[in-house]
Every structure is written in C-alpha cells, then in structure tokens.
Amino acid sequence: MDTSAASRTHLQALEDESIFIMREVAAEFERPCLLFSGGKDSIVMLRLAEKAFRPGKFPFPLMHIDTGHNFPEVVAFRDYRAAQLGERLIVRSVEDSIKAGRIVERPGQDNSRNRMQIPTLLDALAEFRFDAVFGGARRDEEKARAKERIYSFRDGHGQWDPKNQRPELWNLYNGRIHAGENIRIFPISNWTELDIWQYIATENLEIPSIYYAHKRPIVIRHGLVLPISDLLPAEPGETVEERTVRFRTVGDATCTACVESPAATPWEVIEETAVTRITERGATRVDDKVSEASMEDRKRAGYF
C-alpha cells in the first residue's frame, strides 16, 4: 500500500482500524484464535494480521470449521496459505461431529451446513478454551450484521443477544468477560465487498482460483446460478450447461451460487463489483432467503 504520510486513503483508514482491533485483542485476551476458511475475507484478515504482528509470529492460531461441503480449491488454498505463513492451523470438522452423534443431519432438501457447523464451532471453542475468536464478517453483508458490534459478546452458550449489546464508543473496546464466555471479534466490520477487492488488488493477495472466471457446469434455479457437483446435483427437468462463472463467496458448496462473469483479475472484479446491483449474500446464499430474519436467528444461536 501507499505508505507516504501525506495521502490517507479510505483503505488505509480501514486497514489501521483493523490492525488496531487485532492488537487490542492480542493484548487483552488470553487465548484468541482466528477463523480462516481460505475465503477472500479471511485471506484479507491474514494480511492484516501480518501487518499487525510481523516480524513477530501471530499471537494466536488459525482455525477452520470444515463443513465437509467445501470447494476443494479453497481447502487446498487454506493449507497452502497457512504453511506459507508458518502459522499453526487447527481444523475441526462437522463430519466428525456427525459421526460422534453431536449433530443430526436435517432430513429433506436443505443440506446446508451453515447451521450444522454451530455445535462443531462451540465444541472447538471449548476444547481449546478460546476466549476471543476473530471472524471476517462485514456489516455490509446483511441487515442483522449492520447492527452487530466489532466485539460481539457471546454468553456461556455462545449466544448473541442483539438487544443487549455493549455500547462501542471511539476505539475503546470492552473485552472483559467471565469464565466460559467469549467474544467474537470482527476487525473488518466496516469493510465492504468492494473494499475487500480493492485491498486484494493493491496488496497483490493470492486467492483461490474459483474467485475468478472459469468454466463450470451449472443450472439456473430460482434465478440463481448454481454450480453442479456431487454435493449439489441437478434436479430432474433441469438443464445442465457449461458457463463462464466466478464465485463471490465460497461457503458451503451445497448452497453457494456463482455469478456469470468473465472477470479474470481483481481489477476486473472491481469493475464488476462497482456497478453490481445485487449484494453478495443476495446473489449467492440460498439459505438467507428463507426469511427476512434468518441471519439474525442463526446469530442468536451462536453462528458467526
């Protein structure tokens, strides 16, 4: 990034805010961890952690809650990036939780593991006694997120109480908790999708290939462009076509749609994002359409 004293861009301001938050957490909590999925927001988080703590090591491990429904390119990238940084990566999987009988798969069509990963996450927090967990959520993603604090307090059951959030003034974050409680930390709360792409471009960040244009078999379902795979087969009567697409988010492969796009570089994605008329989640998340308050419900239950 431009480091001259005179110019201070909006990215610089956002970056400083995020670095400040990460250092504050590292200083005030005993056992933080950073959720790293291999997705673009968490890739930005790792760069911010480098900026906050290098030449030192990160004062926390990375952790991924593997739903078992991930895109293989993203999982491969996750391992590659963690090794490249020389930082410790913990993986805990929903699959294991199902085998251990901690989770029962829901019958019917909804095989999304967004909700199913909650017990695995809460178990992992208990296993490592993590008291602060960095997540890459942004407030521009969804209406319930727009009101969530940067330090999002969770009770002993991992639950969020939106009506009883701690006030957050200036950059004075209250990180005090009782034993068993934890705080979810969102250092990139104030970033938008466009900011993320601009940062990826200016920082030359590597991201998984599926974020850029590639050919893939898809079907059009409820107006969404769905990638067809073993996890997400075509339904009877649907026509599978090969199209040039890219992903805007790389969540659960059973419920993450892609968008038709020829954008092959971050700058081309920025051009598209700057004129796009649909939010990231609206275009690509099947599970958020369920009800107007579906995100709020998941968050109350312990979701990020």
């Binding site: 521009d140 727009a146 009101k147 939106p162 009506k163 959030q165 709360s189 104030n190 466009l194």
Partner: peptide, 9 residues
Amino acid sequence: IDVAYRYFA
C-alpha cells in the same frame, strides 16, 4: 433501537 452502520461510496 440501536446503532446501525451503513456503507456507500
């Protein structure tokens, strides 16, 4: 009833 943050450019 709370503070909501909105973004535009």
